[in-house]
Design a protein around this nucleic acid. Structure first.
Length: 254
DNA sequence: AAGCCTTGCAACCGCGTTTGC
DNA sequence: GGCAAACGCGGTTGCAAGGCT
């Protein structure tokens, strides 16, 4: 998948990345970090623009980027966070360890949005059928559209423990409209109420709020494996490296 | 088997924000 | 405060793979 490799007017390569390019970029960033994306490709020996390098690193090469299918828990978190944050994909990805904003955005457009739309249309269809059967139209039934946000608000998703403890008698007291909405979101709600989101989110904050630290940790673990001399690796060091005790990043010394 | 259509996702593009001078 | 460069984000596009006819 992806785009055909091509070159822009400046002779910079566009399109799909080759394994060799990936290797160059990965090795370079693991060695030196992303000190300046614009200049980085020159030093790394890549005929790419900095933006392209950054994107490739962030979405594909970065250590701990999780590939593969989403778990239901992850999908539920995305749905819930999308209700709260809208299309703030980077904010959503910050709560999902190993998932990138681009990946979440793609997954949303190709899977989750579709799934929600199906649930929505199913619910609306059921309402129409039941209305015609009963000949009854309550005020709440007149609502044209049922967005997940409305459901979340109606059912107070911010307090899952209450839902978890809801008894069947309580549910029976809900209005006709709310019951249908409940039905629509049941699968989502079950997971949200039974999955403690906060600990998961808290546990991921440390990693995601310190992405470069994570890179550096990876670097520290693997620097010895990159045994070839820097210049032999096909790229140039932008600076002489040195560590300041107690600091976790590099200082350039031009 | 061949052509067309749909799907999934990598990558690009434009623009707003942040940072440094 | 103003400006330019760099960064980061979100929307959009392009294309390969698989499904369908």
């Amino acid at each position: 998948m992806g785009r055909k490799p091509s070159y822009d007017n400046n002779g910079r390569k566009k399109g799909a990345w080759s394994p060799e390019e990936d290797e160059k970029l990965r090795d370079y960033v693991l060695r030196y970090g992303h000190w300046n994306w614009r200049e980085l490709p020159k030093f790394a020996g890549l005929a790419r623009c900095g933006k392209s390098c950054r994107l490739r690193w962030m979405n594909y090469l970065r250590p701990n980027v999780k590939r593969g299918s989403y778990t239901k828990e992850e999908e539920d978190i995305i749905i819930k966070l999308h209700e709260e944050l809208g299309n703030k994909w980077s904010a959503i990805s910050a709560k999902l360890p190993g998932r990138t904003d681009n990946e979440i955005k793609n997954h949303w457009h190709t899977h989750l949005k579709k799934r929600l739309n199906q649930n929505q249309s199913t619910t609306n269809s059921r309402m129409i059928i039941e209305q015609s059967n009963n000949g009854v139209q309550s005020v709440s039934n007149k609502r044209q559209e049922f967005t997940p946000k409305q459901v979340a608000e109606d059912l107070d998703l911010s307090q899952p423990p209450i839902l978890e403890s809801s008894s069947s008698s309580e549910i029976s007291n809900l209005s006709y409209d709310s019951a249908l909405l409940c039905d629509m979101m049941n699968s989502v709600m079950d997971d949200i109420s039974s999955t403690p989101l906060e600990p998961l989110m808290e546990s991921t904050d440390d990693f995601w709020t310190q992405p470069f630290l994570a890179d550096t940790v990876y670097y520290n673990q693997n620097i010895d494996d990159l045994s070839s001399p820097l210049v032999e690796g096909g790229f140039l060091s932008p600076y002489d490296l040195y560590y300041d005790d107690g600091l976790d990043f590099f200082y350039p010394s031009y």
